[in-house]
């Protein structure tokens, strides 16, 4: 195979050293190359010849239609965000590089039908450092946290933990691919903040307010209300201000690891200082 002479990253995503060309058929257009630099390319202008626009109406502009007529999104593997990979690994405590794409997680995932990327695809995207694709995917929001994937992973990766970490990151970056999911979480936590406990009727009311889906599950009301299974008034606890304070402190960022680490270091310093004084 002759080198094509293009510099940058090769198909596997690893950087080719300066002046060392990647290997490609001579004369062919550089397939996934981005002439401008290393950022991911998603435009048709840079698409290789076999990538055609999907005939079906789908969310992705650029798709690779296979011979069988299935469409696949083309993900360009240049522009790996290493900081993103590190952040996911730190937050979840997992080594994503251990995933070898066996697909067991996807096979067992109950929510796969609703995902845009399957679980194993999300794992691959994380390995490739595709921050934008991962954080704006529906999959990270729709994960039911049932832990089937973590249980069945042959490399003992806590896949559900990785999904959770990505969802937390998406929330911090204000990327809400599934708005209803965010509304539900907000409604739930607001109810806990007001009452100290979750209150189903209150959660539903807040959820309807946040989403505008006014008739969500109202047909269930006649089945539960007469039996006293859905009290209209919340059970408020005495320490609800304490619970609200926990949530407020969280929102103020008092539990940020950097902040807490700095405080711990300061405390340790003060203590050792005291110890020295006592000795002297």
């Amino acid at each position: 195979m002759q080198p094509c002479g293009r510099l940058g990253r090769n198909l596997r995503g690893s950087r080719t050293a300066e002046g060392v060309p990647c290997h490609r058929r001579p004369g062919s257009a550089p397939v996934f190359a981005n002439p401008q630099g290393l950022s991911p390319v998603r435009g048709e202008a840079n698409a290789p010849a076999f990538v055609r626009k999907c005939k079906k109406q789908c969310a992705f502009k650029l798709r690779n239609v296979t011979k069988r007529g299935e469409c696949m999104e083309t993900v360009l593997l240049n522009g790996r965000d290493d900081a993103f990979i590190r952040a996911v690994e730190e937050s979840s405590g997992q080594v994503v590089a251990r995933c070898y794409q066996c697909g067991n997680c996807t096979a067992g995932c109950p929510m796969s039908f609703a995902y845009d990327y399957s679980v194993s695809q999300v794992m691959r995207l994380i390995q490739a450092g595709q921050k934008d694709a991962v954080l704006s995917s529906k999959a990270v929001w729709l994960c039911a946290a049932c832990n089937t994937c973590s249980q069945r992973c042959p490399n003992e990766i806590n896949v559900a933990g990785v999904m959770d970490a990505c969802r937390q990151m998406a929330r911090r970056e204000k990327k809400f691919a599934v708005r209803a999911m965010r509304a539900f979480v907000d409604a739930f936590l607001d109810s806990v903040k007001f009452n100290g406990r979750s209150h189903e009727v209150g959660i539903m009311a807040l959820y309807m307010l946040y989403t505008g889906r006014v008739w969500t599950d109202v047909e269930l009301a006649p089945k539960v209300l007469p039996k006293g299974k859905m009290p209209l008034l919340p059970h408020r606890i005495k320490g609800r201000s304490e619970v609200a304070a926990i949530i407020d402190r969280y929102k103020q960022g008092l539990s940020d690891p950097e902040r807490v680490r700095a405080r711990l270091a300061k405390d340790a310093g003060a203590e050792s200082g005291k110890g020295k004084e006592a000795v002297s």
Partner: peptide, 22 residues
């Protein structure tokens, strides 16, 4: 006495630290 909500799935969706604090 005077127990509070554990935060269920929504809390650990936001942050495991928040969930654990509850």
């Amino acid at each position: 006495p005077d127990w509070n909500c554990c935060g269920s799935t929504p809390a650990h969706t936001v942050d495991p630290v928040l969930s654990s604090a509850l």
